[in-house]
Write a protein that binds this DNA or RNA. Structure first.
Lengths: 350, 350
DNA sequence: CAAAGCGAAAAAACCGGTTTACCAACCGTG
DNA sequence: CACGGTTGGTAAACCGGTTTTTTCGCTTTG
């Protein structure tokens, strides 16, 4: 044998075995099984019983080689262990499997080299397409590489200057809802703690924040707007900075639940009661934030729907549908729990 | 062209293109690139520059077909969105990629049919091997199917009667540590809320619980041991059952953090203060339980190490190493936070 | 009655690698 | 000088499918 058991494999029946058993040619079997020809009932049933008798299944590698497609897609995220990405990946896998696709994990740790590695894997046909989630500002490297690639759908975060199917959420509305809620509860001095300046979601959520402030005739104090990262560490650090101010805010809109988590922990450490002394609104609605004390009020991103939607869009792209000219926007929703208290002389003060 | 752009693919250079450019045969190129022959420097450099000039990369599907291996492994879990599994999968991906393997997601939702589907995929060579995590008791179906399969490593939970590499944690020690801790804090009337009776981890954690009780000369009250499921809903329900008892426990050892989450929420709803009125110890140490109020005291499973370890073991198996005769056991560790209070007349009462 | 047409299925080429088998040239040796 | 061994390759088979092209036998039809 040519390949002396690379993985102690038993020999599986091939299409030639089936053909021999049915007394026809391999081509006849192939075309019958793919319904690309209709054979007379007698021949067809001979093939069918040979398939059944041998328990034949086409070799997937041979199929992939000859068809030139893999029936696999990659989900590129900074880290699939982060619940928001995990939920997306899980939903994506479920949807993909309904269409006969497998999903491979592509963790980038937000490193551009690893992002490029996975784009390479697409270019070299390891997968048919990619669902691409990035979390950092791009200096153009990514954009340039993406330009030459098809079959990528951008999810949740944009890469500037790229033409590709894009599925985002309504970040602006998210910022608006969160901030309006704080204002309605009587807060006047609001802070905004958010991710890295320059990335789309940060800009849009901030724009929502500003619009809500403007609607209420409130000024936006630059000292209360903290750009940094989407993670817990920055949430904690931002608390320290805000807490050190002479005029502290009474409420904070945080652009991710991770930020809120970090700030909540910092509050606890500093003995600041939430929401009595400081109100918090997060963003994402991670599955466990309802169990925090207080349960976190937050803007819900439809993670599962994002994953499903991205898969559907990707498969459509693979089937040749043109790239839509504008991003698809999924709605967000404010989930009111317990991390916002009434404040000041506002009518809704409790 | 035979395949009229199944995915609008540009034609990529093949080994024959390289061979032609270098003025040698495809076989020479193949053998040179795989270092299965050493060619004279002049010929070698001609091939190398042809490779560079054409930017040649071997077609992975052709490689897979001709070698009969996929360089892919599957991670089978009930749901990759559950943080414990997500952490395992993430670490597994990282380790696998270091060895040149890709990882495909296999969500089973704990349904045996889907588990069997993924075992089928292994049998039909969609992947080289499987890391298999299940969460339910097996009636023998799974065991029988696994018997005929190689290249599966069982992770975290056993499937009875299977011979395969197995990587578990020290469940018994986990139960022991958690229970001893409660006893040391002065608790005498302890409850144990756990997953489905019959699965290995449940049995072993319960055995640890009993041993700690026996060490302290304490009786195990059957009414305080609640088998059910590993999820939040059962945690909440178990609280209701325990709370309805005439003689309530002062502390509970819960066999998962999800159970603890459910019970914590139920406590809050019932106005029972944790840990003042009821002490809780969880199991898993999910990444966010430190942010709960109170921060959860729990037994830490080394999720990342489990994932890495499973990958390494699987790759060794693929390389032909024999199946170890006993499971590998990873250590657990008690993480003391704030969900256990001192109780009664014990010296450590605060 | 030759030509045309058609249905059924085989043959052969192809996807893009790897590997086996073999060959030619050259060199040293008994 | 015949023989054997090494060096430096090549041709062809193979992995296991799909697809194009061809063949064969059997009606129709002008």
């Amino acid at each position: 044998m040519r390949n002396p058991t690379p993985l102690n494999h038993a020999r599986l029946p091939t299409i030639r075995d089936v053909a021999a058993a049915a007394g026809v040619s391999p081509a006849a079997v192939s075309r019958h099984l793919n319904r690309s020809v209709v054979l007379p009932a007698e021949t067809a049933s001979r093939i069918d019983s040979a398939v059944a008798a041998l328990n034949y299944r086409p070799n997937i590698q041979a199929l992939r080689l000859s068809r030139g497609i893999t029936q696999m897609i990659g989900v590129v995220t900074p880290d699939i262990a982060y619940p928001f990405f995990a939920m997306i990946a899980s939903a994506a896998e479920e949807e993909a499997s309904r269409f006969g696709y497998s999903v491979v994990i592509c963790n980038t740790r937000n490193q551009i080299e690893r992002e490029l590695d996975y784009l390479d894997k697409l270019a070299w046909r390891h997968v048919d397409g990619l669902i691409f989630l990035t979390n950092h500002a791009d200096d153009g490297t990514l954009g340039k590489r993406l330009e030459r690639l098809q079959n990528v759908v951008l999810l949740d975060e944009d890469v500037a200057g790229t033409v590709a199917p894009k599925i985002f959420i309504d970040n602006h509305m998210g910022g608006l809802l969160a901030t309006r809620h704080l204002i309605e509860q009587g807060h006047r001095r609001l802070a905004h703690v958010t991710g890295p300046a320059g990335v789309m979601s940060v800009k849009e959520r901030f724009a929502g924040f500003r619009q809500a402030m403007a609607e209420a005739g409130l000024p936006v104090d630059e000292a209360l707007v903290k750009f940094g990262a989407y993670d817990e560490a920055w949430g904690a650090e931002a608390f320290r900075q805000l807490f050190a101010l002479a005029e502290r805010p009474s409420a904070v809109f945080l652009a991710s639940d991770a930020l809120a988590l970090g700030m909540l922990a910092a509050c606890r450490a500093a003995g600041v009661a939430v929401p009595r002394s400081l109100s918090l609104v997060g963003f994402d609605d991670l599955p466990f934030v309802r169990y925090l004390d207080p349960p976190l009020t937050t803007v819900r991103q439809p993670a599962e729907e994002l994953g499903r939607c991205a898969v559907r869009r990707l498969i459509e792209t693979l089937r040749g549908l043109p790239v839509p000219d504008r991003p698809e926007r999924l709605p967000v929703e404010l989930v009111v729990r317990g991390s916002v208290a009434g404040h000041g002389s506002h009518p809704s003060l409790r």
